[in-house]
Design a binder for these strands. Structure first.
Lengths: 206, 206
DNA sequence: ATGAAACATGAATCAATATTCAAGTCAACA
DNA sequence: TGTTGACTTGAATATTGATTCATGTTTCAT
């Protein structure tokens, strides 16, 4: 029999438990997004979730645990969405464009997404890195294949992955986060033109 | 006569005071970088600065004030450095390359820079935005001139500014922050090739 | 129907720390 | 050298909030 230092934190077995746990995750996403990790109090989270304070500790051992779970969940959801949005597209540029749009739309429907990811740098640095490393890795694989197939210029795939993530991140910040809307179509076209130019066989030396 | 709710927080008039205030700013940069705003305690800051706890409140009214001042200082220092590094260059692409390198080097010598900027989103959101908006504005002006002079493709300058900032930000994170070094020359060349491709007259429709 | 798991509750504990303040120390000038 | 304003000190205050726990309540298999 395993002895634990603390009361066991169990996965809920009943439907009621599942619901409560989910309410806590939802509340936490909102509160963390609004206040940031440190200023988010457990009381605020349970308040938003409409459960009592103590209930929190039935499902999570501490504040950091629910945050980390949230980050993992959001990362998974984003990647699922991206895979879905780009499935079956046959040119790399089409993948980029669809992926960019899906990303921006995802952010728009998870406004607290950015803020949670950024907090993560201070809350759970290892997880923060693996979030980006994971994204970059699968991104780079797709790019490497496109390089292989001579579809795009021969640039280091990981480097390109980080550049593209940076572009999307900042465009998302500027428009979705600050203005609450997708960038106007005209600007989105400029984003795509820029990326297209960068990915296609670029001019050689200076 | 102006009445204040609190004891006046004065700028130091003597050299000793100047030194002490600066020690506090330096200590704060380190501690904020290491711990993040919320977890950074005033005691830790004064400890690092080697002054007594109470001394802090002689120079700053509260924790947020020193943080904001730090962000403003760092922003200023970065822009000064960028202006210096790109002064006199005559092609836009040369400006981009020199600016990119100067940025990465700046980050390397101010390791806590990133973390402070990112914390800012939660500590002083207005200042955080104006930090990026200020950078983007002067960036966009340079780009607009290059578009005007038909040196680069006709893309929305502000959009391009955010894309480039995103690229630099992520490359800096991946290499300088995570590896503690500038990207290998080979990768830097790929970054420049990508940017060159994006900025030059990009292929039209798909 | 009923007893045992599961689940829910919120007052109490306990540590951390931002900020204040009353009492010193220093440096320079008259 | 005595005086004064500038500067420094660190103990005391006051609040906040994470976490615990003893006590109810609900669910459901039998």
């Amino acid at each position: 029999m395993v002895r634990r230092g603390k009361a066991a934190v169990h996965e809920p077995t009943t439907a009621r438990g599942q619901r409560t746990r989910q309410k806590l995750l939802d509340g936490a996403e909102e509160i963390f997004g609004e206040e940031g990790f440190e200023r988010a109090s457990i009381a605020a989270i349970t308040g938003r979730a409409e459960v009592a304070l103590g209930t929190f500790y039935v499902y999570f051992p501490n504040k950091q645990a629910i945050f980390s779970e949230l980050l993992i969940e959001l990362g998974r959801a984003l990647r699922r969405r991206l895979a879905e949005a780009t499935r079956g597209l046959d040119t790399r540029l089409a993948v980029e464009e669809a992926g960019c749009l899906a990303f921006l739309e995802f952010v728009q429907s998870h406004k607290n997404f950015y803020r949670i990811v950024r907090q993560a740098e201070f809350v759970d640095e290892a997880l923060y890195r693996s979030y980006y490393q994971g994204l970059a890795k699968s991104y780079a694989e797709g790019l490497a294949a496109a390089v292989e197939g001579d579809e795009i210029a021969d640039l280091d795939p990981e480097t390109v992955a980080y550049m593209l993530m940076g572009i999307f991140d900042f465009i998302g910040m500027r428009w979705v986060l600050w203005e609450g809307q997708l960038p106007p179509e005209k600007l989105l076209q400029d984003v795509f033109r820029f990326i297209r130019g960068g990915l296609l066989r670029a001019p050689g030396g200076r």
